Structure formats: structure tokens, C-alpha cells
Amino acid sequence: MDVFMKGLSKAKEGVVAAAEKTKQGVAEAAGKTKEGVLYVGSKTKEGVVHGVATVAEKTKEQVTNVGGAVVTGVTAVAQKTVEGAGSIAAATGFVKKDQLGKNEEGAPQEGILEDMPVDPDNEAYEMPSEEGYQDYEPEA
């Protein structure tokens, strides 16, 4: 019985440690998101679009440190934060509304985080759909 109880105690310690790591990862992701939003706020009209992409990228980098179902929630929060940063930029006159959601080359930025393969159960990952990809044929 002692062996059984000791095993359960060790398992509990492992769960607590994993929860603490997840909590730490979420806190880091939130900190990076805040950094990115402050970065966007300090940019001029020309830099705002690039700044919004930076927020998304920093958040995406930190999301990889967070495991399990938390990833889905962090990704949703990050996307809403990026959308909010863009709205703030438009409201303050840093950028025109028609410039939001495009990178410096004018290509749409939507789907940055949505296409990231995420499995809350950590069982399997699927690649994003290939609808947006084109076949590449090298020139002879």
C-alpha cells in the first residue's frame, strides 16, 4: 500500500510541476504579447503594419512553449490582441483601416495563427491545408 501511495504522490508532483510550467509559459506569452502591443503603439504610420505582424510573430513563438489545451486559448487571445492593436492603430490615425491585415508588401496577414497546427491532446499534428499553395516548377 505504501508503494501505491508513494507512486500516487510522485504522479501528483509531476502534474503540479507540469501545471506550473504551463502557467509560466502562458505568463511569458502574455508578456511578449504586451511587449508587441507597446511596440505597435510606438510606431509611426509606416511601421504600424509591420508592428502588428511582430506582435503576432512574438506571440506565436511563445505559444510553442505552452502545451496542451492552453495553446488553443493563448492563440485565440493573441489573435484578438493583434486585431485590437490594429483597431487602436486605425482609431489613433497611425494607419488607414484599409491597410490593416496586410503586410508591407500588401499581402493579407489573416491566418497567421489560424494555420498553425495545434492539437490540445498532444496526440497528432496535421499540416495546414494546401489550398493556398501553388506547385513550383523550376525553369529549365
Rank of each mutant, 00 (worst) to 15 (best):
K23D: 00
V40P: 00
T59N: 04
G86K: 07
A56N: 07
Y39A: 02
G68S: 07
K23P: 01
E35W: 13
Y39S: 10
A107T: 08
V3W: 03
A19E: 00
V48I: 15
A90L: 15
K58E: 04
K21E: 02
T33M: 14
T33F: 02
S9D: 07
G106N: 11
G25V: 01
V74L: 12
K43V: 15
T22L: 10
V77D: 03
S9Y: 03
E83D: 06
E139G: 09
A140Y: 08
L38M: 15
A69G: 06
S129K: 05
S129M: 10
D119Q: 15
K96L: 14
V55W: 15
S42P: 00
E20R: 03
D121W: 03
Q109R: 02
P117F: 06
V66Y: 12
E126T: 07
G25Q: 15
E20T: 10
E104V: 03
V52G: 02
A78R: 08
D135E: 11
G132A: 11
A107H: 11
G47K: 10
P128Q: 06
A19F: 15
N65T: 14
D2L: 08
S129C: 05
N65D: 04
K96F: 14
E57P: 04
K96D: 09
A124I: 03
E46G: 04
G93N: 12
T64F: 03
D135F: 07
E57S: 02
L100D: 12
G7Y: 09
A78N: 04
A78E: 02
I112L: 13
E83V: 00
K34M: 15
N122V: 09
Q79I: 07
V52K: 00
G111E: 13
A89R: 13
G93V: 08
E28I: 05
Q79T: 10
V74M: 14
T75H: 02
K96G: 02
E104M: 03
P108W: 05
Q109I: 11
A91R: 02
K96M: 15
N103L: 07
Q79F: 07
H50P: 05
E114K: 06
S129F: 14
G7K: 01
S129P: 09
D98E: 05
G36L: 02
E13M: 00
A19P: 00
G31K: 13
E28A: 06
K58P: 01
P138E: 10
K80S: 01
V37P: 00
D115W: 13
G25E: 09
P117C: 11
A27G: 06
S87A: 11
Q99L: 02
V52P: 01
V95T: 08
V16P: 00
V15H: 00
K12D: 00
T44G: 08
T33L: 10
T59I: 09
M1A: 02
V55Q: 00
V40L: 15
P120W: 12
A78H: 07
E130Q: 12
H50K: 05
V48S: 02
A11M: 15
A30F: 05
K32Q: 08
G73Y: 01
V70T: 04
Q79K: 08
E139T: 03
V118A: 03
V37A: 10
L113Y: 06
I88V: 06
G41H: 02
V52D: 00
A17Y: 06
T92Y: 04
V48R: 02
T59F: 15
A107G: 06
K97P: 13
E114S: 12
E46S: 06
T64G: 06
A29P: 00
D98K: 11
K58Y: 14
T75C: 07
A78C: 07
P117S: 10
Q24A: 02
K10E: 02
A11C: 00
E110G: 04
K43G: 02
E110F: 07
E57K: 11
T59H: 02
G86H: 14
A140R: 11
E137L: 09
K12R: 02
D2S: 03
E57Q: 14
E105G: 09
Y133A: 07
E139P: 14
D135N: 14
A27F: 13
A27W: 11
K34F: 11
D2W: 02
G86I: 08
E130V: 02
N103Y: 06
N103I: 03
L8Y: 06
V3I: 06
G73R: 13
E130W: 13
V95S: 13
Y125L: 12
A69R: 15
K32L: 14
Q134G: 14
E123Y: 07
Y133L: 11
A124S: 13
P128K: 07
M1I: 00
V66T: 05
E123M: 09
V82G: 04
V95G: 04
T81Y: 03
Q99N: 07
V3F: 14
D115P: 12
E105Y: 12
G51E: 01
V74W: 10
L38R: 14
G67C: 06
V16G: 05
K23Q: 02
E57G: 09
V52S: 04
V15A: 01
Y133T: 09
Q99E: 10
K34T: 05
K45D: 00
A27L: 12
Q79P: 02
V15M: 12
P120K: 08
E131P: 14
E35A: 07
V55L: 10
I88F: 15
V55P: 01
D119R: 12
E126A: 05
D115L: 08
M5E: 00
A85L: 13
K97V: 15
V66L: 06
G47N: 15
G132V: 02
G14E: 05
G86T: 05
K80W: 15
E28G: 07
E114R: 15
A89Y: 14
A89M: 15
A89W: 15
Y136T: 02
L8G: 00
E105I: 11
A91L: 14
T64R: 08
S42Q: 07
M5V: 11
D115I: 04
Y125D: 12
K10R: 05
I112P: 07
A29H: 05
A29S: 03
P108Y: 05
E104F: 13
E104C: 00
A85Y: 13
S9P: 00
I88Q: 05
D135C: 11
D119K: 11
T75N: 08
P138F: 10
V71L: 14
E137R: 11
A30Y: 13
E114G: 11
P138G: 12
M1E: 00
G14K: 11
G36V: 11
E123T: 12
E114A: 14
V26K: 00
K43A: 10
E20P: 00
K32R: 07
G25A: 15
D98W: 05
E123I: 15
I88K: 03
T33R: 01
K43F: 01
D121E: 06
L8M: 02
T81D: 03
G41M: 09
F4W: 07
G93A: 00
V82D: 04
E139I: 13
A78Y: 14
